[in-house]
Amino acid sequence: MPLSLSTYLFWGAGTALELLLCALALRNGLFRRLWFFTLYVLLVAIYEVSWFGAIHALGYKSKGAFYFFWLAQAILLSARAAAIAELCQHILRPYRGVWALAKSILLGIALILLGYATIATLGRTSWITAFILTAGRGLELAAAVILLTLLFISAYYRIRLEPVVRLVALGLCFFSTVQMLNNSFLVGWLVQYFRLMRFFPLWDGIRTLSFNVAVVIWCLAVWRPLSAMAPEATLLPQQIYDELAPQVNYRLRMLNQRLLEMLKV
């Protein structure tokens, strides 16, 4: 099936953006800071070019193109998961206490959401596309929640985010959130009432558009040469926290108690 001019233009613009991102990431040394994320953007660019070759060689609606597409999605999703884990580590690891706490929270969230995604996916074994979309929905939900939690923790503890790291996190979070909505809408509503393949271009269009928005955000992140790495935070002796934290909490508790009493007056 020949593709329309608009599809070519859409694909061309997206691929050009991804290649630009790869070039900027390599030129400005993003791989020294975020290795897995750089690998992910490289894989995306390779996929875009090879996907175009695959649909021309195998045909847009062929089984070969279908398997190529979903296999590539699985690889890209895994690479993105690795990039997210790397991002969490990069942001929080210098703060040992917070990292130990956040690690257990983030792992807990990931286990719960991935477990739920597995259960939801296993219940949809009847139709392979619905199966994949359900899995994708669960994984995107997990990614979005983990990234938002990470951003919340860093904001709460006033951990300074380098502009490049902040924009990478925001881009990933944006894409995961839109994808989760996209998958939910398709899996939940359109699949139930219509033939799915009829809406596949719509799903793919939203996915590509949101991804291009994320790529623009990432291009902005690596547009300029990266600044030198900030020196690692000097940690305080453990004794300070052990002495101060219970006192702070005690005072806050009492303060709330007083406020409550004021309300009762």
């Binding site: 703060y95 040992r96 206490g97 706490l101 503890y157 935070a233 000097t234 940690l235 305080l236 453990q238």
Partner: peptide, 10 residues
């Protein structure tokens, strides 16, 4: 929060 973020363990 600052003391917590700069502590080796919380």
């Amino acid at each position: 929060r600052t003391v917590a973020s700069l502590s080796p363990g919380v």
